[in-house]
Nucleic acid binder design. Structure first.
Ligand SMILES: [Mn+2]
Ligand SMILES: [Mn+2]
Ligand SMILES: [Mn+2]
Ligand SMILES: [Mn+2]
Lengths: 222, 222
DNA sequence: GAGCTTTTTTAGGCGAATCTAAAAAAAAAT
DNA sequence: ATTTTTTTTTAGATTCGCCTAAAAAAGCTC
């Protein structure tokens, strides 16, 4: 029941790639893990032997139930540590991912459950991603891309799908943060940029590229 | 400037063994690290190449200045994490060492300095051992073995030199903890056991073996 | 469906950290 | 000063995670 850091990173990467496409390719994994396809093939064989993945040569890969469970445990650790780093130690959004990439491999289950308590059992990490609970259940968070928000409807920013320092710089410049109330006031056909207000402030224009990474919650009519 | 977990464990072990005997033997290291002498020799060569130790075949080993500096950084991390686990997450003394053994290898310097701030820059870990500061300076703590305390003089327990669950069980049974005021009320020649009072309570008898692991601070007359 | 391109796997190797068995050096005993 | 014992090092393997180069399979294109 104890896996190497390397194996845990593979399992987590497979989990994330499965969200895009239910069958994960060797190349996609190699890209994600910044390694070579040949190395991935080697590792897939080992993960298969340990029953963490379904794998047949040339057919791509999928997590088994136990692989999925393991992935959720690692993600839980990653996100709880990120929350800790931001909320308790005052780190910025963009700094925490790398550190959490190490902390997520600390093995003590008791540690993570106590940390969860200490932090007040948060539902989401600093980027708005949901934190699986001790049983591996991921809170379902209703969110839609800001770009799909109709003009004139207010909605709260609940997550961002990019955590680069560059993007966070830009958000900071526009004074946009998780929780900010956003409203689209105008759309421009030419480059699909949008004009929005932040917390009812003056309108600012943001690119489609930025908007695509912002996710908001708004009441659905049904 | 980044070393493997294994190398860090060697450096820390050498540091601790140097406290006993300034020149550390291959066998002593193998015992401490639960590994084989042949493995130790291999590793010593590598640590020597990296200038972390002074090493000549058959002559034992000593940390260089940079080895010593590294050891203190690792010990700082270890003890700060132990403090965090006990004070913030409510772990018992005896549970934290093993977890800290992993956490001490998390590389971010910024993380550890912020953790230090968050914890209020503690001077000692939960077992009373001093925590080196960011510059690697170890607070000097005046302490003497309880066994050397004269009869009738009160002194405060400031550290214990054994962290086994068994010993902590026994301490808990006698309601002795770090900070308790202890006074020797009687000494018995036969087995060198001693009778003490804890916080001015009723006298209890403890073995020489237990007493040897308790360290107290008391005013020296000079 | 034959041929070209892309993806994936295999083959062979390397560095890190470990091991066992054997040799060599140092230390202790006689 | 030998001999014996203990300590330490060397030699040779193994496992893990990775690599490059080459082969094989799958997927496209005409
Ligand atoms: Mn992250
Ligand atoms: Mn990781
Ligand atoms: Mn400890
Ligand atoms: Mn350690």
């Amino acid at each position: 029941m104890k896996y190497s850091t390397s194996k845990e990173n593979y399992i987590k990467a497979i989990y994330h790639l499965e969200q895009e496409d239910p069958v994960v390719s060797t190349n996609a994994l190699a890209r994600q893990l910044a390694t070579k396809p040949a190395s991935v093939t080697d590792m897939l064989k080992k993960l298969h032997e340990q029953q963490l993945i379904h794998y047949e040569p040339y057919k791509g890969v999928q997590l088994t139930d136990s692989g999925n469970k393991l992935a959720l445990q690692i993600i839980r650790k990653h996100r709880l540590w990120e929350f800790f780093l931001v909320e308790k130690l005052g780190f910025g959004w963009e700094e925490v991912h790398e550190i959490a990439e190490e902390l997520e491999h600390i093995s003590s289950k008791k540690l993570i459950d106590r940390l969860d308590d200490f932090l007040g059992k948060p539902k989401t990490d600093p980027h708005g991603d949901p934190i699986p609970d001790a049983a591996g259940i991921v809170p379902k968070i209703e969110k839609r891309c800001l770009l799909d928000l109709p003009v004139g409807i207010a909605a709260d920013l609940i997550s961002v799908s990019n955590q680069s320092a560059d993007m966070l710089d830009l958000l900071r410049h526009h004074q946009i943060e998780i929780g900010s109330r956003l409203k689209i006031t105008n759309r421009f056909r030419f480059d699909r940029s949008i004009q929005i207000t932040v917390q009812g402030g003056p309108p600012v224009t943001i690119s489609e590229q930025l908007g695509a990474h912002l996710y908001v919650a708004w009441a659905t009519e049904d």
